[in-house]
Design a protein around this nucleic acid. Sequence first.
RNA 1: GACCCAUUAGCUCAGUCGGCAGAGCACCUGACUUUUAAUCAGGGUGUCCCAGGUUCGAAUCCUGGAUGGGUCACCA
Length: 496
Amino acid sequence: MTQGEELNELLQVRRDKLDQLREKGVDPFGRKFERTHTAQAILDAFDHLSKEEIQEKNQPAVIAGRLMSKRKQGKASFAHLQDQSGRIQIYVRKDEVGEEQYETFTSADLGDWLGVSGTVFKTNRGETSIKATEITFLSKSLRPLPEKFHGLKDVELRYRKRYLDLIMNPEVKETFLTRSRIISAMRRYLDEQGFLEVETPTMHTIPGGAAARPFITHHNALDIDLYMRIAIELHLKRLIVGGIERVYEIGRVYRNEGISTRHNPEFTMLELYQAYADFHDIMDLTESLITHIAQEVLGTDTVQYAGHTVQLGQPWARKHMADLVKEHTGVDFRREMSDEEARRLADEHGVEITPAMTFGHILNEFFEQKVEEKLIQPTFVYGHPLEISPLARKNEEDPRFTDRFELFIVGREHANAFTELNDPVDQRERFEAQVREKSQGNDEAHPMDEDFLEALEYGMPPTGGLGIGIDRLVMLLTDSASIRDVLLFPTLRDQG
RNA sequence: GACCCAUUAGCUCAGUCGGCAGAGCACCUGACUUUUAAUCAGGGUGUCCCAGGUUCGAAUCCUGGAUGGGUCACCA
């Protein structure tokens, strides 16, 4: 709503009440207020006691919150105040707070912020409440809240005006509290394991470390285009070269691609690198990290997601991509196979491919189209083909594959990791192959990065690396169907 | 990017065959000192998403557009 807009009756009434408050000498946008309790703290301490026990204690309390309901009954009223912890009922009597304050209270609108001093008591109907001795007006709400019973359902409004969603839908607040706890548990765990948290640039001169289309921006003073990072990888590996042996970053990355229930243009990744480790060590780490987080945040290693019961208790299945494809389609990609034969097999099994695809791409398509969605329980899928893994070390026994894994849970990728490629000559060849792919039309192929190659040439120790999509992990642990339900302000079109 | 669905009061939603724009909550006036989706009496507050078209007449039918949701595609 804009400044010039005519105020409808509901808005006008509230503005009139604002003026009336000022006329009475009440500041409608008050000041600092000291409380003694949150709503939940009072319920925790008193709700289990009887009406008489509470009365004996005669416990004073000062609370504050947003007025969410009001039941006026002549010279006394009931109402609920909501603070971050929850809701608590207040009971306001004219003969207790005086005529002036009672007037202020009864003319308050749902949505106004009030402070209440009083004593804890329990009503005849058994609800622990505060009997007010003093009402302090804290802040005026000039707009009506969504309907008190049905709440805010409109999905678009919930995302655009998340504050209303948080006010009206308690489970939304719970989801974001859980998100915060997940990230904090993750940090604590990694810190305890000796990992150093760092911050690296989010604006890159070369968009690398993943296969994705970047956002482009421009720096005026330097007159150069910069890319919003699509991964954290290459900077963290430079730090491994620099001798930091265990390093991680939890940060935003940006990919200029489609939006869906599982994709937001900006999302949060954990990336970590551990010197002297390989991808088997990283599997162990991933398993214990996620199980630990679930235990610490949810108190269980069993989670419900979209009707599935997911067992996060160790150990998780570890399967070679080619073996999984063989299991589900009968096609054996472990044996020698020409690109032509792979294409023919794709055709026979109804796997869609593009003409430029070779053996490794086709194996990956088999996996994505025939296997991926079936992996409900945590499964480490390893041995990704060389063609789609330009930053991972080749497998020693079969160089068509790499020492890479992805973690699948409920049919979705939750982590991506590998034994890092630390041979600068091999790395240069991989980049060159990617550049060839790019020239053949794959606009998500990895660009050449000379500065990164130079770092590798100084020597990088054998290293294991890991990336975890935090948003998807939060979705899994909060049973959220859409990524928008775990992002406070998901990307939406500008409404103008 | 393709397809399907939705858009009516501040919010949640009805709206029949094309015939005066509706309900509940919220809000306003009054009653009510342990209520709790408080109750009782009275009051309807609107760019029916937008722009065209058909029609005596459109929230309703047609065309185009906007926004959102879902599915698919792409990806994490």
